[in-house]
Each structure stands twice: as structure tokens, then as C-alpha cells.
């Protein structure tokens, strides 16, 4: 039953889940954001340089990144986790537990985040980009002061979606010793038939997703200046 130990375990599970989710999202953006920006910029409808040679280079960069992202996104998460165990061991020193799970979570999240960033940036009005170019803004200036600023609402919604998705992945990771709430749900709910524990973990997961979602949406609405 839900005694003191059990509650303590759930609290720890929640903490681990949040830790994994937030860290993996953070690292996911560390890689995914530059990848997404690069995808948007180097795409044919992106921000093309004037010189032919550079255009060729852009096309190659886009193609390579595009393929990498597509391959990474089509590997199921559980398989990816097993696949990257050597990498995980090399980085964290072990292949089980919350800290170790962050590695495959990040690897799974980065390409998915890259795609979301790419599509957010594509929403930025071409005319505004051209206005910046006509003022003599360089690529970095455009990325930093135009793309990321004008797309910030959409980017924040992306962060919210990423958090929710990564939280889901982290629960899945519980099946193979990943720690956190997913781990608890499987050990107690599945192997020991403690339905109440499983239900509580589900409720906690739902509440977590709700809270993250609400915070994200509120922030993005607060930051949006497009409405009068």
C-alpha cells in the first residue's frame, strides 16, 4: 500500500524524472538548436549566400544534416537506448540509472528538436529577413536578432512539446533500468501487480505534463507582441 516508504520513493521518482527530462531537454537544445538553425539557413528557401560556391556548400551541409536527422528520428527510442550503451558508458561510466538515461534521451531529442526549431524559424516573415539584409545585417545578426527573436513564441511552444515528449521517453526508459517514475510504474505496477502505485505514477506524470504545458503556453503568450 501507499505507506511512507512508498511515498518517499514516488517523490524520489518524480525528482529523477524531472531531472532526466530537464537535463535531456537542455542538452537536446544545446545540439538541436544549432542544428535546426543550420537546417533553416542552408535550405534552398533559407538564407542563401550570394556566391555560387557558398551556395553549393550550403546545399551539401543541408543534405548531410537532413539525412542524419531523418535517420536518427526513425530509430525507435528503446532500440536507440540499447544501441548507444557504449557511448553512455563512455560518458557516464554506467549504463543504468537516471544520469545514464540522459545520454540516449539527448541523442533522441536533438534531431527531433532540430526539426521543430527549423519549422519555427521557417515561419518568420521573409520580408523581415530581407529588410534586415537590406540594412546590411550579416548572417549572425539575422539569426540572433531576427530569426530567434521573431520566432520566439513558436520556439517556446516547441520547448513545451519537447519537454512533454522527452518526459514520455524517460518513462519508457524505465523499462530498461532508467530510473524515475517509469521505472517505478513498471517494477511495482507491472511486475508486482500494485495497481495503485501504477495509478499514482500515471497521475503524477499527467500532472507534470500539464504543469510544463501550462507554463510554456503562458510564457509564449506573454512574450508575443503580435497581438495589439
Amino acid at each position: 500500500m501507499l505507506d511512507k516508504d512508498m511515498i518517499w520513493m514516488l517523490v524520489e521518482g518524480t525528482r529523477d524524472t524531472l531531472y532526466m527530462t530537464l537535463m535531456a531537454t537542455l542538452f537536446g537544445y544545446l545540439f538541436g538548436l544549432p542544428m535546426g538553425i543550420t537546417l533553416m539557413v542552408t535550405a534552398k528557401e533559407g538564407i542563401q549566400p550570394t556566391s555560387r560556391v557558398k551556395q553549393k556548400v550550403y546545399a551539401i551541409i543541408y543534405k548531410v544534416l537532413d539525412v542524419i536527422v531523418n535517420i536518427a528520428r526513425s530509430i525507435p527510442f528503446l532500440i536507440l537506448m540499447i544501441l548507444v550503451i557504449p557511448v553512455t558508458k563512455a560518458i557516464v561510466g554506467k549504463s543504468y540509472g537516471s544520469a545514464a538515461t540522459i545520454v540516449p534521451l539527448t541523442i533522441a531529442a536533438a534531431p527531433f528538436i532540430a526539426r521543430m526549431v527549423e519549422s519555427s524559424l521557417q515561419e518568420v516573415d521573409r520580408g523581415v529577413i530581407e529588410a534586415a539584409q537590406s540594412m546590411g545585417a550579416g548572417l549572425w545578426r539575422i539569426i540572433w536578432s531576427v530569426l530567434l527573436v521573431e520566432a520566439r513564441t513558436s520556439l517556446l511552444i516547441g520547448v513545451t512539446i519537447a519537454l512533454g515528449t522527452i518526459l514520455g521517453y524517460s518513462a519508457m526508459a524505465g523499462a530498461v533500468g532508467g530510473g524515475g517514475l517509469g521505472d517505478i510504474a513498471i517494477r511495482y505496477g507491472y511486475y508486482r501487480y500494485q495497481t495503485d502505485v501504477m495509478l499514482v505514477t500515471i497521475v503524477v506524470l499527467v500532472v507534470l505534463v500539464q504543469i510544463l504545458q501550462s507554463i510554456g503556453m503562458m510564457l509564449s503568450r506573454k512574450l508575443d507582441r503580435r497581438r495589439a
Partner: peptide, 23 residues
């Protein structure tokens, strides 16, 4: 590219749809 960016500062442009930074 760098020289062009510099010259562009001397050539302003305004547009039909204004193209202001909305945020």
C-alpha cells in the same frame, strides 16, 4: 559579402508590407 553589407547601409529600402520586427 562584407563589402556588400557595408554598401547596403547606404541603400535603404522600404516595402509594401512594412517588414517591421513584430516582436
Amino acid at each position: 559579402d562584407a563589402e556588400l553589407r557595408f554598401v547596403r547601409r547606404d541603400i535603404g529600402m522600404i516595402f509594401q508590407h512594412f517588414n517591421l520586427l513584430m516582436q
